[in-house]
Design a protein around this nucleic acid. Structure first.
Lengths: 228, 228
DNA sequence: ACCTGAACACCGTTCAAGT
DNA sequence: ACCTGAACACCGTTCAAGT
């Protein structure tokens, strides 16, 4: 029994692999059908058999990231602790690909791992006392915040080239230290922390803490009571 | 005394005006030097006298948005109430241009209105009990969250074309209602709220509330005490 | 200083055609 | 079903040149 790989010269999964690699170090804008085709010894048009258009390819990248989310098992801890663990799992998956984190948003309610995440988040929020609709709204916004957290990861944001990265940091530092300390006393004295956080782990820990603390603080808050 | 407009055929501010208009309804990617040049009866290359490159043009757009921020006067209310007002002012300026909100992030510590906002935010956070460095970190993350809030504004996100918008909403609703209600009971029952929030004002109100509640909840929290 | 013209090295995507 | 070839309508940007 011989493999029937006669007609399938192109494996879509392998195309996504190389797209992921390109996007990781040059950003999603640098991913092009022409580049991918060249790397797979094929005409650009061949890709259209496997991806409807570029958006479809990027959607596949988003699905890849979501597939890396490992949901924590339910425990008997309070809802907010479990939500914290759930959101940390989400962030942990995205952290590996900071430039692509955005791509997950439109895929969450489509890809299976995204749906599982959403379902569990709603469960916990409702356990926390939110109505179904409020849970949906709060959950949506929390996910957006965390994606933004990853997207703006100050460590990974710059180009992979470490020398260009250093140059950009120096430029930022210079522009801040050129400011008048009497006009902007706090901005100038916080320059270091504003430009680059002390540690990447701490950055993400604070990010998730802020989101969960926000949710905890907003239960039974007047804004949610507003009809409309 | 006659106007000396002999040599300046091209007014950079007017170019930014039309770039803003294009970006507002087709997104920043649709802004091109060639299109702008055509609309101003000039060669694409003429723009390079006024903008170093496309990034420089987009930076000018970011500055435009920041210029619309109207900082509230300091009052004698508690720090968190004042911070709420400050962040609301920021969001209010960005809301007018949801597709461009991202462009402000790299300009905040550069443009004057952004610096004023940052300085005031740091003041209030320090008044709230944060160290200078923690205030910087928390402030940075809060701004990122709010930009994401605007960027993902579910009402304005889709194309301006209201018919295409309706079609996209229908497609999303259909994809959610195709899910198994036994497997995803909450996602399916919250479908409406997940796809589109009830009101735009409420959406933004909840967004700012969440951020401020998060900050309030995180004062004196263990994560911030971690050295490093 | 400000603008033009031609050119280079890219894009996504359509359409008709091959096997 | 899967891939090719040629073409269309775009991009940003460089370089040399005009006034």
């Amino acid at each position: 029994m011989i493999t029937k790989e006669t007609s399938r010269r192109l494996d879509p999964e392998r195309v996504v692999d190389t797209a992921l690699a390109i996007a990781d170090d040059e950003g999603p804008a640098a991913v092009s059908f022409r580049k991918l085709a060249a790397q797979h010894d094929v005409t650009p048009m061949a890709l259209y058999r496997h991806f409807k258009d570029k958006d479809d390819l990027l959607a596949a990248l988003g699905d890849r990231l979501l597939a890396d989310v490992v949901l924590p098992e339910p425990t008997d801890e309070p809802w907010d602790k479990q939500l914290h663990a759930l959101l940390t799992a989400f962030v942990d998956a995205l952290r590996a690909h900071p430039r692509l984190a955005d791509l997950t948003l439109p895929r969450i309610l489509v890809a299976t791992p995204g749906l599982a995440l959403a379902e569990r988040a709603l469960e916990l929020l409702i356990e926390g006392g939110f109505s179904v609709d409020d849970a949906a709204e709060i959950g949506r916004q929390s996910i957006c915040s965390l994606i933004a957290l990853v997207t703006t990861d100050p460590v990974a944001r710059e180009v992979s080239d470490p020398e260009a990265r250093e140059a950009s940091l120096r430029r930022k530092r210079a522009s801040l230290s050129a400011l008048s300390p009497t006009q902007y006393p706090l901005v100038t004295s916080a320059a270091g922390a504003l430009i680059c956080p002390s540690s990447r782990d701490r950055y993400y820990a604070i990010g998730v803490d802020l989101v969960v603390a926000g949710i905890r603080g907003v239960v039974d808050q007047p804004t949610l009571r507003t009809s409309v």
